[in-house]
Write a protein that binds this DNA or RNA. Structure first.
Length: 195
DNA sequence: GTAGGGATACACT
DNA sequence: GTGTATCCCTACT
């Protein structure tokens, strides 16, 4: 499969524009030549200083410094003692906004994903931010990596298909809970199951 | 519904 | 340095 990564300027916009635009795009990793790829069906926008729910709200720390860098890089963090989540840094450098990739529909490398997840059902492979990282083999060592590399990236699908986008409040946060910065495909079985 | 898990940030000595 | 509250969650009952 030929994969054309999205251009840098795709990411150099407000996270609230990038997040819905990422729906339908293809997130992939290629590890030791093994491709795993899924269609993005759910995202969330996180702003920098003005967003109390963002990791960057309190300023730059060793953990979140990637968010303060240029757009088009991966911010990977570890949470709840067990899980990784992957974000795409967006906007101008220093702004520290990002888009959390929350769920994928598995497309390529499904047997590899099943092995990594120890689950058979397609719906269990990537229907949540921690699950999709496990399915694609993403861990902390990917933090700060470019999303325009051969091993990791987000590509335009060769065969686009139409879908409806819905917005809702973000999941799993305690602050700014009312802001509708979660975007997902309507009636898609692969979105995360949290509301 | 809730147990589990570890890193992180920040308040304190 | 230690204490502790929190966390962009998952898997199980």
């Amino acid at each position: 499969m030929r994969l054309m990564n999205l251009p840098r300027n795709f990411y150099e916009r407000d996270a609230r524009e990038v997040a819905p635009d990422l729906l339908g795009k293809l997130l992939f990793t290629r590890i030791h030549g093994v491709l795993t790829l899924g269609r993005i069906v759910e995202t969330e926008a996180y702003l920098g200083f003005e967003d109390p729910a963002s990791h960057a709200f309190r300023g730059k720390t060793p953990r979140n410094e990637v968010m303060f860098g240029p757009a088009g890089f991966a911010y990977v963090y570890f949470t709840y003692g067990a899980h990784f989540c992957v974000n795409a840094v967006t906007g101008a450098p220093g702004l520290a906004s990002a888009v959390l990739i929350r769920a994928l529909e598995p497309v390529e490398g499904i047997s590899t994903m099943q092995q990594r997840r120890k689950k058979e059902k397609l719906r269990d492979l990537a229907s949540g931010p921690g699950k999709l990282c496990q399915a694609l083999g993403i861990d902390r060592s990917w933090n700060g990596k470019s999303l325009r590399s051969p091993q990791l990236g987000i590509a335009e699908p060769s065969v686009p298909h139409s879908f409806h986008i819905e917005a809702s409040p973000r999941v799993g946060i305690r602050k700014a809970v009312h802001l509708p910065y979660r975007y997902f495909m309507a009636d898609c079985p692969y979105v995360s199951n949290t509301r």
